[in-house]
Computed example of a mutant assay.
Amino acid sequence: MTSAATGRRRLMGAGLGAVAAALAGCSGRSGPVPRLRLATGPRGGPYHAFGRALAQAAGDGGGRLEILPLATAASVDNLRRLDEGSADLALSMADVAEDAALGRAPFTRRAPVTALARVYVNYTHLLVPAAGPVRSLTDLAGRPVAAGADGSGVQVLAGRVLGAAGLSTGPAAAGERQLGLAESAAALRSGAVDAAFWSGGVPTPALTALAAELPLRFLSLDGYADALRERYGPVYTAVTLPAGAYGLTAPVGTIGVGNYLLAREDVAASAAGELLRVLFDRRRDLLREVTAGVRLEPRFAISTGAVPLHPGAAAYYRSVYG
């Protein structure tokens, strides 16, 4: 058993009296309303939309918690903001969160990060024009590829997938271009790139819109999941883009990565518990656009790998679910 799993079990099973008491007293708070800065992602992207929806839900919850969504470059940027203290909460892909918790590249040291919940699964999309010559990942040798915005989790994942296929260095290297979702879609339309990586819920509205105007092919990636797991740990899983999404006539195997809602260690236990109450009470509204990858229930939510649960989160799960 890993140290993170051992610590999670201890938090869930014992020694929670003081934290649970703080959580129980949250509804009776008479002091200032906690105001937490949530690092999300670029404006117009799914993380920022989720953060704004979560902030609205918290505001509808009786004024016990205020959340301020911050537009960012996404996962890597978000973890750096948590580390430096310019954000209190963050959304991140699980692989980037574990890199930060372990002090692994692209981070230079361990960050003071804890998990509140594993919220849903991101599905890796590798899309190309259906009329183009690219039919598999290896066909991208030497070709320009939109590989996620600088500072995003997509950039990290795309680099690792290309590396697993032998396309990150040498004469066969794909030409990685750091482009966000909107820029990637525009580059595919214009022919400036031959493929684009994206990691998100299914369906991602921007890709649904793109597929309506440009016939797309989604490339299979699930054959690389084991190689990623061997090198980076179990945050990567084989999942399936379902038939029907984006007009797909058959399912496509790909790589899944969890999304974590994170907090600095010094966020108050009562505030963490109130945030989770809002998240679970309003989960259907918050995740209504994600039809695949939604598994927001306690057993799933506490599975945060190498990232330890925040004491307030452990108290919440213990008090509500036993």
Rank of each mutant, 00 (worst) to 15 (best):
P34T: 09
L127K: 00
L216H: 00
L70P: 01
A209N: 08
P171R: 15
S184E: 08
G153Y: 10
D60V: 01
A174C: 05
P215R: 10
V257G: 03
A4F: 09
G258P: 14
A172P: 01
R143I: 05
L228E: 10
T108L: 07
A185F: 08
A14N: 07
G163D: 11
A301L: 09
L91E: 14
V239R: 15
A115F: 06
I302H: 09
A53V: 03
L68M: 02
T138I: 01
Y246P: 00
G13V: 11
S199D: 03
A53E: 06
R231H: 06
V239L: 13
G61N: 14
L276D: 04
P205A: 12
E230Y: 04
M1N: 12
E176S: 08
G223L: 07
R283S: 10
D139V: 09
Y260T: 08
S92C: 12
R109T: 06
L91K: 11
G256M: 11
L137E: 10
T204N: 11
R109N: 02
L309S: 09
P144H: 10
T291K: 11
R284W: 07
D222V: 01
V290S: 09
V113R: 06
L82R: 13
S75R: 15
A21V: 02
A174K: 13
A105Q: 12
A165K: 07
Y232I: 02
E98Y: 12
A185L: 12
L286R: 10
P112M: 06
M93Y: 14
R37S: 14
P205F: 09
G305I: 07
L82Q: 14
L228G: 07
T6Q: 15
D226K: 00
T40E: 14
L16R: 15
L65E: 01
G322I: 00
G142Q: 11
A185Y: 06
A71M: 02
S190E: 02
D99Y: 15
G7R: 15
P46C: 02
G223M: 03
V119G: 04
A238G: 08
A165H: 08
A117H: 04
D222A: 06
R104F: 12
P215Q: 07
P298W: 14
R109F: 02
L68P: 01
E297M: 05
L82E: 10
A111P: 00
A263M: 01
G31I: 01
N259H: 14
R104W: 14
R299Q: 11
F50V: 15
A271S: 11
G45N: 13
V202Y: 09
A117K: 04
R295I: 01
S30N: 09
A195T: 06
G63Y: 11
L91Y: 11
S3K: 09
L286V: 05
T240A: 13
S220I: 04
R109W: 05
R35H: 13
R217G: 02
A73I: 01
R282I: 06
L296M: 09
A117Y: 04
T169E: 15
V252Y: 05
